[in-house]
Nucleic acid binder design. Structure first.
Lengths: 340, 340
DNA sequence: GTAAAGCCATAAAACGTTTTATGGTGGGGA
DNA sequence: TCCCCACCATAAAACGTTTTATGGCTTTAC
C-alpha cells in the first residue's frame, strides 16, 4: 500500500523499457506515436506520477519556490507579537503560487547553517525586505538561483529584480495629510535595518521637509525594540528642545503603539495635540486605545506582483505587465479628519 | 561554482569510505569516536549538507509539511475576495513551522490530478476543514502519511488527530449575548459544506433553541455563493412568516455582508431592529457599513495547536499539552452594547 | 589454544528517475 | 547486392544518498 507507482511498473505493464516510458512522458528522445500513446494511456490508468525527488536528483525543477522574510531573520523570532504584515504576505504568496500550480515554502536565513533541507534545490526565491548588500542575494546569485526581492537592496542599485510599494508617494500622502490638517512640526520614527523601507522613507521625508521648509526630526530605534522602542523614540524627540511635534509618522506598528502610549502618559492628547500614523498596519494598531491610523501595505498586491515577476524569471510565463502596487491609508482614532 | 559538496567529496578528503561519512553524520552504524570526529570536522570545513532529494529518495523526512485548505479547494479559486482567515492561517502555520526548524508548503486538493510535485513525499499534513469522509484523509491514511485536521471530519467519529476552536461555546456566547440584549427570535445562516464548522454550529444552535424555547430558523447557502448567498438567505428567512428575526448569526463573513446589505435595503435597521454577527471575521466584515461584529477565530492559535499536534505525531516533540484554543468576539456596529 | 563475541570499516545494492550511447530493423539509393 | 540512413527502442550510467550484508581484526571467555 505504501509503495507508489514507479516508472518500472508502467514499463512492465506497457511492455516497453523504462527509457521508453520516460521519453513518452517527457516528450524527449525518439519514440513512435503509437508507443507514446500506449504508454501515456497505461500511465494514466495506473495513476503514475514521476517522483519529484528522483527527478530533482537530475536537476529538474521542483515546482517549489522559497519565501524569505528577512526582517524576521534579524528579529530572531518568527512570531513577533502584533506584527501581521509577514503572515499576511506569506499567506498571500502561497495562494498566488497555488493558482499557478506551484508551491511555496517559507525559509529561514539561508546564510545561517544548518540550512533547512531542500532550500538549495528550490526553483526560485522571493526575498522580503533584503538588507543592504544582503549576503543571501550573493548566495543565490552564486548558485544561479532566480529570485525577486520585495523592496530594493539599497546597496545594489544595478539590481532590477525587485518590486516595491510606492514608498515615496505613501510618505508624501501621510505628510501632506498632516500638513493639510494644520500640523507644522512633523517627526519621523524609523527602524534601524538598512533596507529600502527605512531608507527610502527617510529620503522622502527629508525631501518633503526641504520643500515645505520644515525642520526634520528623526528618531531611529531598532525594529526589535518593539513598543519600548517607540516610547524611547518619543522621549528622544521631546528632548530636542523643539517642543511636542504636531504629528508623528512611525514606520512600524509596534513603534507606533509604544509612541502612542508614551505620548498619553506624558499628558499629550492624541489626536488633538499630536497626530499619529503607523507606516505598516498591524493588530497592535487596530487594538490600541485609540486605534492607530495606519497604512495598509496591501500584502496581497505585493505578493501578486512578486510572484508574477518571479514566474517571468523562471520562464513559466511571458513577460506581461505586473500588477500595479499601491497602499491605502486607514484613518482611525489618531488622526484628525482630513479633507479627502 | 554551481556544483555542491557531495558526500563523496567529504569521504575523499577525510580518507574514509562514503558509508563512514554517512554513518558519522547520522549517528547510525558503528564507527569509532575518532573517525566520527574527523569526518564531522571535514564536513563542517567543506560546508557539506546532505542533499535532501537524494536523501528523500530513501524515505528520510524532508523537513517539510503540507497545508491543505479544503474550503478553498471546493471554492475553486484560491483567492476569494474578502476572505482572510485562510491567508492568516497559512501564514501563521508557516511561522510556527519555521520556529521548529521545519517548513510548510501550501498544497491543492491531493485527490485532483495532476498533483503538484513533492506532495506525496512530505513528512505530514495539516488539513483545514475537511469535508465529511474526506477522500484526502483516505489517501493520506492509505499512504501512511501523518496528518492533523483543523476541524473534525464529521464522518469519522473515531478519528482523533484534529484540533478545533470551541465551536459550541462560541455559538453559545453569540446566542446568549443576543438573548441578553433582548433578542428573542434568533436565526442562523450557514454554509452547505458538510464540515464540523457548519454542522457543529448547527447542533449547538439547535440545542440552545431547545433549552431557551426558541423556534430554530436556519437558512443554508453554499459558501461559494458569497454575499449574494447572504442576501438570499435573508429573503428566505423573511418568507417563513415569522417576521423579521431579532438577531442573525451568519457563520461566514461574506454571507454576513450580503445579509447586512439585504436587511438595510429592506428597510430593517441594524442593529436596533436586527442584530448581526459573523462567525468568521474578514476584511468584508471590517469594511462594511456599519462594520460587522464578528468572531475572530484567532488563526494564530489554531496554527500553533495544529502544528504542535502534528509534531507530536511526527515524533519530533514529546506529547506535551497543546496550546489552548479560544476565539474572541469583536463587537462592531451591528450589535447592541452587551453587558460584558 | 580455540571459539565466540565485539568492534570498526567497507562494498555493494537500492531508491526512481533522466540522459547518453548503442543497437537493431527496414527501406531507399547507388 | 551493398551501404547508408532514418527510425525506434533499449541498456546502462549517472544523480547523491542510506542501508544491508560482509569481512577483518581484537578481545574476551572457556
Amino acid at each position: 500500500m505504501r509503495r507508489r507507482v514507479t516508472i518500472r511498473d508502467v514499463a512492465r505493464e506497457a511492455g516497453v523499457s523504462v527509457t521508453a516510458v520516460s521519453h513518452a512522458m517527457n516528450g524527449k528522445g525518439t519514440i513512435s506515436d503509437t508507443t507514446r500513446a500506449t504508454v501515456r494511456e497505461v500511465a494514466e490508468r495506473l495513476g503514475y506520477q514521476a517522483d519529484p525527488l528522483a527527478r530533482g536528483l537530475r536537476n529538474s525543477p521542483l515546482g517549489l519556490i522559497g519565501l524569505m522574510l528577512r526582517p524576521l531573520d534579524s528579529l530572531g523570532t518568527y512570531r513577533p507579537d502584533g506584527v501581521d504584515y509577514f503572515t499576511r504576505l506569506a499567506g498571500a504568496v502561497a495562494v498566488e503560487c497555488l493558482d499557478r500550480e506551484m508551491s511555496v515554502m517559507l525559509v529561514r536565513d539561508l546564510t545561517r547553517l544548518p540550512r533547512s533541507p531542500l532550500t538549495l534545490s528550490l526553483d526560485g526565491y522571493i526575498i522580503d525586505d533584503p538588507v543592504e548588500r544582503d549576503p543571501v542575494i550573493d548566495l543565490l546569485t552564486g548558485l544561479d538561483i532566480p529570485f525577486v526581492s520585495v523592496g530594493r537592496d539599497v546597496g545594489r542599485p544595478e539590481m532590477t529584480s525587485w518590486v516595491d510599494s510606492p514608498l515615496r508617494e505613501e510618505t508624501e500622502t501621510v505628510l501632506e495629510g498632516f500638513h493639510g490638517s494644520g500640523a507644522r512640526s512633523v517627526a519621523l520614527v524609523t527602524g534601524t535595518d538598512r533596507n529600502s523601507w527605512n531608507l527610502d522613507s527617510i529620503a522622502a521625508y527629508e525631501g518633503w521637509c526641504r520643500r515645505r521648509g520644515v525642520r526634520p526630526r528623526i528618531a531611529r530605534r531598532p525594529e526589535s525594540a518593539g513598543s519600548d522602542g517607540g516610547r524611547a523614540a518619543v522621549r528622544e524627540l521631546l528632548a530636542d528642545g523643539l517642543g511636542v511635534p504636531d504629528a508623528l509618522y512611525c514606520l512600524t506598528g509596534r513603534h507606533a503603539s509604544g509612541a502612542l502610549a508614551e505620548l498619553r502618559s506624558l499628558g499629550v492628547d492624541v489626536p488633538t495635540q499630536t497626530q499619529l500614523i503607523a507606516g505598516s498596519d498591524s493588530e497592535q494598531c487596530r487594538s490600541s486605545q485609540p486605534p492607530i491610523s495606519a497604512i495598509d501595505l496591501e500584502p496581497a498586491l505585493v505578493a501578486a506582483a512578486a510572484v508574477h515577476q518571479l514566474m517571468v524569471r523562471l520562464g513559466r510565463v511571458e513577460d506581461s505587465e505586473a500588477p500595479e502596487l499601491h497602499s491605502r491609508l486607514v484613518p482611525r482614532g489618531t488622526t484628525l479628519p482630513w479633507r479627502s
